[in-house]
Design a protein around this nucleic acid. Sequence first.
DNA 1: TTGAAAGCGCTACCAA
DNA 2: TTGGTAGCGCTTTCAA
Lengths: 341, 341
Amino acid sequence: MPEKRKKTLKDIARELNLSPSTVSRALNAYPSLSEETIQLVKSYAANHQYVPNPMAVNFRKNRSSTLGMIVPKMVHHFFSTTISGALETAKKNGYSILLVQSFDQLKDEILASQYLLSMGVDGLLISVSNETKEAEHLQAFLDEGKPVVQFDKITEFLPSPKLVVDDFEGAYQATSHLIAQGYRKIAHLSGRMDVKNAYERYLGYKKALEDQGIPFHEEWVPHCFDITEEEGFRFTQTLMQSENPPDALFCITDLVALGAMNYLKSIGVAIPQEVGLVGFSNWMLSEFTTPTLSTVDQFGEQMGSKATLMLLDQLKSQKLGNADTVQLKTQLLIRASSSKG
Amino acid sequence: MPEKRKKTLKDIARELNLSPSTVSRALNAYPSLSEETIQLVKSYAANHQYVPNPMAVNFRKNRSSTLGMIVPKMVHHFFSTTISGALETAKKNGYSILLVQSFDQLKDEILASQYLLSMGVDGLLISVSNETKEAEHLQAFLDEGKPVVQFDKITEFLPSPKLVVDDFEGAYQATSHLIAQGYRKIAHLSGRMDVKNAYERYLGYKKALEDQGIPFHEEWVPHCFDITEEEGFRFTQTLMQSENPPDALFCITDLVALGAMNYLKSIGVAIPQEVGLVGFSNWMLSEFTTPTLSTVDQFGEQMGSKATLMLLDQLKSQKLGNADTVQLKTQLLIRASSSKG
DNA sequence: TTGAAAGCGCTACCAA
DNA sequence: TTGGTAGCGCTTTCAA
């Protein structure tokens, strides 16, 4: 390799007959320097394409300028938008992001945490796995003085700031919309009740029914475990074949709604005329189904960005006590699958 | 913050009455040390949860253990699988990945390159934007002795190893499959002819027709510019309304095929009975359309992993001359949209 | 087989 | 307003 020796700060100091400290201060715009010196050094550095060695800076400042980020699975559309938002915001603030997937398994999440710690990240952004029911591995960050921000999928076992979507409200609105469209027998393809988001959506659904005086039937709330298209298909089949089939389905996520849609189409049920359908998360695919799928948008990009800012705030303030939960609003997107009129 | 002072290598040396160099050598399993000392140091380090400071190591070794990765857009399913594969492989080899998106714009790609360079990455993985017709900004990496590997979307303007999918062969197989199914009037919803992947697929399509003696009609090959569902819909409409409508469509990507499918369904054309349909890339959604969409899988995970290995190889060998192109096989996935029988 | 010590590039403290 | 200089934690020569 060409091995071009890079110019260092010391080189500049020598060439300019200044001390390294002065050059350093000039480059970092210290208040006490003369405007003259600052200009001299800055223009010289620019003209000789001096680039500070980031490794040296980080080493000296005892930080890595890197944030760890753990998500269940990055191929999930929502998480990829979340990551995208976090990356942009981190970059703008001089940080980079080290990304790891937990594949929704506690075991992998623990490994990921240890890995990030060993890589010396300055803080952690995490959306926990479905299996996470304790948080020792995350507490380890706090113990080292490294802030953590949880987003979307959170655990109460770790005292850190949390950023969530208002799942309850999103589900409430989705269900209310179905009611407003004239549906009365509304089922909910739910998730695991020990996963907070799923539980909140369930509660929002239930409350909406209650508030408009629609009876709630436990048997209309099957629980998906893996949250797949296949489960959506299968549970919808069971529901539709029961003696009292529903006339609308509110699904915990778009993928499940897609399964429901596919089953309904397979037996020739008209959507939305005979059965209404609403999903959750605004997956890319929901725009392109036939009919298009009504859903609840979670603003993933914004969430990733906001979570990063919350983490950077802690890094700046050097305070770790905060364990507040910030809620982001959702937005109901009404598309063809639930629009009778 | 609690500010727990971390144990350093020097601490261990003192506590064990050894010199720092010996401890360092023991931890890194140097050949010349006595087995005894190695064991002593290693177990002591483990018991006192010593973790080497990665910043110091990188600084000392004048590297960052970080690879830059530029992709057009990470929310695209193919790229997110690619990233996933790269992340895993990098991690296994002690490297992390710094990810940036170009949003398919040269301007952003240039900024991304400069950013990665300033962050001191050791090498670059890149899938170039549609706009990239020169490579000065990438040459800058080579000039600094940092290896580059291009994958999927490549430019010939940079002499670096390249990893691509055999687009020609994939398109050839897809088209041949349609012919084998009995379709004879096969259109191709193509892309920009100045983008290599699109051009190769176009050539594969054409060659397949030629080899089986099926006439080629230029007017059956509209060119998408943005590669969207909307374009798929619109161009299919134009084709189907022409005096000589095709009986099959091979689409440059699944999203375009989805648009085609949606148009065909909207006018009541039966898929695959009346019109056959094949996409490209195996987007997640292609499994879940009705009917399910035949497509060409590109093994994104494997591609990301392989590209990373190619980059690490160069890092190890310290040689930058190589500009070979490695081709990965594709796999035709035959699903309902093209299965008459 | 082990130790001593220099030094990677930068920042920040203490002086002047 | 500027300079001198120690030192971050580690690796790696050179010497023993």
